[in-house]
Amino acid sequence: MHAPIPHALGLLCAATTLVGAMMVITRKVVVHAVLYLVVTLLALAVVLALLGAPFAAALEVIIYAGAIMVLFVFVVMMLNLGQADSARESEWMRPRAWLGPALLAALLCAELLYALPSLLAPLPPPFAGPATETPLPPAPPLFRLGVHDVGLSLFGPYVLMVELVSFLLLAGLVSAFHIGRRRAEER
Protein backbone atom coordinates (compact mmCIF):
# COMPACT_ATOMS: atom_id res chain seq x y z
CA MET A 1 0.00 0.00 0.00
CA HIS A 2 1.10 3.54 -0.66
CA ALA A 3 1.59 6.00 2.10
CA PRO A 4 -0.67 8.89 1.02
CA ILE A 5 1.72 11.82 1.31
CA PRO A 6 4.73 10.32 -0.55
CA HIS A 7 2.36 9.03 -3.19
CA ALA A 8 0.94 12.52 -3.65
CA LEU A 9 4.49 13.87 -3.91
CA GLY A 10 5.35 11.30 -6.54
CA LEU A 11 2.27 12.13 -8.59
CA LEU A 12 3.09 15.84 -8.26
CA CYS A 13 6.57 15.20 -9.61
CA ALA A 14 5.25 13.11 -12.46
CA ALA A 15 2.78 15.86 -13.35
CA THR A 16 5.59 18.45 -13.26
CA THR A 17 7.63 16.28 -15.60
CA LEU A 18 4.79 15.95 -18.07
CA VAL A 19 3.87 19.65 -17.99
CA GLY A 20 7.51 20.61 -18.49
CA ALA A 21 7.88 18.21 -21.43
CA MET A 22 4.70 19.57 -23.03
CA MET A 23 6.01 23.11 -22.65
CA VAL A 24 9.36 22.09 -24.18
CA ILE A 25 7.85 20.93 -27.43
CA THR A 26 5.41 23.82 -27.76
CA ARG A 27 7.65 26.86 -27.15
CA LYS A 28 8.63 29.18 -29.98
CA VAL A 29 11.88 30.52 -28.49
CA VAL A 30 14.67 28.00 -27.99
CA VAL A 31 15.84 29.46 -24.68
CA HIS A 32 12.38 29.09 -23.16
CA ALA A 33 12.37 25.45 -24.22
CA VAL A 34 15.79 24.95 -22.65
CA LEU A 35 14.52 26.40 -19.37
CA TYR A 36 11.52 24.09 -19.38
CA LEU A 37 13.74 21.14 -20.27
CA VAL A 38 15.93 21.84 -17.23
CA VAL A 39 12.83 21.83 -15.03
CA THR A 40 11.65 18.61 -16.66
CA LEU A 41 14.97 16.91 -15.95
CA LEU A 42 14.98 18.13 -12.35
CA ALA A 43 11.47 16.75 -11.84
CA LEU A 44 12.54 13.46 -13.38
CA ALA A 45 15.50 13.38 -11.00
CA VAL A 46 13.06 13.73 -8.08
CA VAL A 47 11.01 10.86 -9.54
CA LEU A 48 14.16 8.74 -9.67
CA ALA A 49 14.98 9.62 -6.06
CA LEU A 50 11.46 8.67 -5.02
CA LEU A 51 11.88 5.33 -6.81
CA GLY A 52 14.82 4.57 -4.53
CA ALA A 53 17.67 5.44 -6.88
CA PRO A 54 19.51 8.40 -5.31
CA PHE A 55 22.66 7.81 -7.36
CA ALA A 56 20.74 7.95 -10.63
CA ALA A 57 18.96 11.08 -9.43
CA ALA A 58 22.26 12.79 -8.62
CA LEU A 59 23.68 11.85 -12.01
CA GLU A 60 20.55 13.12 -13.72
CA VAL A 61 20.98 16.51 -12.06
CA ILE A 62 24.76 16.73 -12.50
CA ILE A 63 25.20 15.39 -16.03
CA TYR A 64 21.85 16.00 -17.70
CA ALA A 65 20.57 19.17 -16.11
CA GLY A 66 24.12 20.43 -15.68
CA ALA A 67 26.48 19.42 -18.45
CA ILE A 68 24.19 18.65 -21.38
CA MET A 69 22.01 21.69 -20.79
CA VAL A 70 25.14 23.86 -20.69
CA LEU A 71 25.92 22.51 -24.19
CA PHE A 72 22.47 23.54 -25.35
CA VAL A 73 22.80 27.01 -23.86
CA PHE A 74 26.21 27.50 -25.46
CA VAL A 75 24.92 26.51 -28.89
CA VAL A 76 21.91 28.80 -28.51
CA MET A 77 24.27 31.64 -27.64
CA MET A 78 26.56 30.92 -30.62
CA LEU A 79 23.80 30.55 -33.19
CA ASN A 80 22.54 34.13 -33.22
CA LEU A 81 19.45 33.55 -35.28
CA GLY A 82 17.06 36.22 -36.37
CA GLN A 83 16.64 39.39 -34.36
CA ALA A 84 19.29 41.78 -33.18
CA ASP A 85 21.19 40.85 -30.03
CA SER A 86 19.80 43.50 -27.73
CA ALA A 87 16.23 42.71 -28.71
CA ARG A 88 16.87 39.05 -28.04
CA GLU A 89 18.40 39.72 -24.66
CA SER A 90 15.50 41.87 -23.60
CA GLU A 91 13.26 39.05 -24.78
CA TRP A 92 15.12 36.63 -22.54
CA MET A 93 15.02 38.92 -19.54
CA ARG A 94 11.28 39.46 -19.60
CA PRO A 95 9.84 38.07 -16.36
CA ARG A 96 7.04 36.32 -18.26
CA ALA A 97 9.56 33.99 -19.89
CA TRP A 98 10.92 32.95 -16.51
CA LEU A 99 7.59 32.69 -14.70
CA GLY A 100 6.59 29.19 -15.76
CA PRO A 101 9.93 27.46 -15.16
CA ALA A 102 10.40 29.34 -11.89
CA LEU A 103 6.96 28.24 -10.70
CA LEU A 104 7.60 24.60 -11.51
CA ALA A 105 11.10 24.77 -10.00
CA ALA A 106 9.72 26.32 -6.80
CA LEU A 107 7.26 23.44 -6.58
CA LEU A 108 10.13 20.98 -6.89
CA CYS A 109 12.22 22.85 -4.33
CA ALA A 110 9.41 22.80 -1.77
CA GLU A 111 8.95 19.10 -2.35
CA LEU A 112 12.67 18.46 -1.98
CA LEU A 113 12.80 20.38 1.31
CA TYR A 114 9.83 18.37 2.54
CA ALA A 115 11.30 15.00 1.51
CA LEU A 116 14.94 15.64 2.43
CA PRO A 117 14.88 14.08 5.95
CA SER A 118 13.57 10.74 4.71
CA LEU A 119 15.99 10.70 1.77
CA LEU A 120 18.92 11.27 4.11
CA ALA A 121 17.93 8.50 6.52
CA PRO A 122 20.50 5.69 6.85
CA LEU A 123 20.36 2.94 4.25
CA PRO A 124 18.54 -0.26 5.13
CA PRO A 125 20.64 -3.41 5.37
CA PRO A 126 21.20 -5.01 1.95
CA PHE A 127 18.63 -7.49 0.80
CA ALA A 128 19.95 -10.99 1.56
CA GLY A 129 18.04 -13.40 -0.66
CA PRO A 130 14.58 -14.92 -0.34
CA ALA A 131 12.49 -15.14 2.76
CA THR A 132 14.01 -16.73 5.81
CA GLU A 133 12.50 -17.79 9.09
CA THR A 134 13.82 -14.80 10.99
CA PRO A 135 11.39 -11.90 11.32
CA LEU A 136 12.06 -8.87 9.17
CA PRO A 137 13.54 -5.70 10.66
CA PRO A 138 11.16 -2.75 10.94
CA ALA A 139 10.37 -1.50 7.45
CA PRO A 140 12.28 1.56 6.21
CA PRO A 141 10.36 3.97 3.97
CA LEU A 142 11.76 2.48 0.77
CA PHE A 143 14.41 0.13 -0.50
CA ARG A 144 17.26 2.11 -1.94
CA LEU A 145 19.91 0.98 -4.42
CA GLY A 146 22.76 3.32 -3.62
CA VAL A 147 26.17 3.98 -5.07
CA HIS A 148 27.55 0.84 -3.42
CA ASP A 149 25.19 -1.55 -5.21
CA VAL A 150 25.50 0.24 -8.54
CA GLY A 151 29.29 0.29 -8.34
CA LEU A 152 29.48 -3.39 -7.50
CA SER A 153 27.24 -4.24 -10.42
CA LEU A 154 28.92 -1.79 -12.80
CA PHE A 155 32.46 -3.03 -12.30
CA GLY A 156 31.50 -6.65 -11.70
CA PRO A 157 29.33 -8.34 -14.33
CA TYR A 158 28.99 -5.25 -16.53
CA VAL A 159 32.61 -4.19 -16.84
CA LEU A 160 32.60 -4.99 -20.57
CA MET A 161 29.76 -2.52 -21.05
CA VAL A 162 31.84 0.13 -19.32
CA GLU A 163 34.57 -0.47 -21.89
CA LEU A 164 32.04 -0.28 -24.72
CA VAL A 165 30.68 3.00 -23.37
CA SER A 166 34.20 4.36 -23.24
CA PHE A 167 34.55 3.44 -26.92
CA LEU A 168 31.28 5.23 -27.60
CA LEU A 169 32.45 8.35 -25.78
CA LEU A 170 35.73 8.27 -27.70
CA ALA A 171 33.86 7.96 -30.99
CA GLY A 172 31.65 10.89 -30.04
CA LEU A 173 34.68 12.95 -29.07
CA VAL A 174 36.47 12.21 -32.34
CA SER A 175 33.42 12.92 -34.49
CA ALA A 176 32.59 16.17 -32.71
CA PHE A 177 36.22 17.22 -33.09
CA HIS A 178 36.15 16.27 -36.76
CA ILE A 179 33.04 18.29 -37.48
CA GLY A 180 34.39 21.27 -35.59
CA ARG A 181 37.76 21.09 -37.32
CA ARG A 182 36.22 21.18 -40.79
CA ARG A 183 34.27 24.22 -39.79
CA ALA A 184 37.39 25.98 -38.52
CA GLU A 185 39.29 25.23 -41.74
CA GLU A 186 36.57 26.56 -44.00
CA ARG A 187 36.56 29.95 -42.38
Partner: peptide
Amino acid sequence: PPVASQALWAPALS
Protein backbone atom coordinates in the same frame (compact mmCIF):
# COMPACT_ATOMS: atom_id res chain seq x y z
CA PRO B 1 9.68 -9.46 -6.95
CA PRO B 2 11.58 -11.02 -4.04
CA VAL B 3 9.21 -12.12 -1.32
CA ALA B 4 11.01 -10.89 1.74
CA SER B 5 11.55 -7.48 0.26
CA GLN B 6 7.90 -6.66 -0.25
CA ALA B 7 7.64 -5.55 3.32
CA LEU B 8 10.64 -3.32 2.78
CA TRP B 9 9.32 -1.64 -0.29
CA ALA B 10 6.73 1.11 -0.24
CA PRO B 11 7.94 3.59 -2.84
CA ALA B 12 6.19 6.82 -3.64
CA LEU B 13 5.38 5.72 -7.19
CA SER B 14 4.34 2.20 -8.07
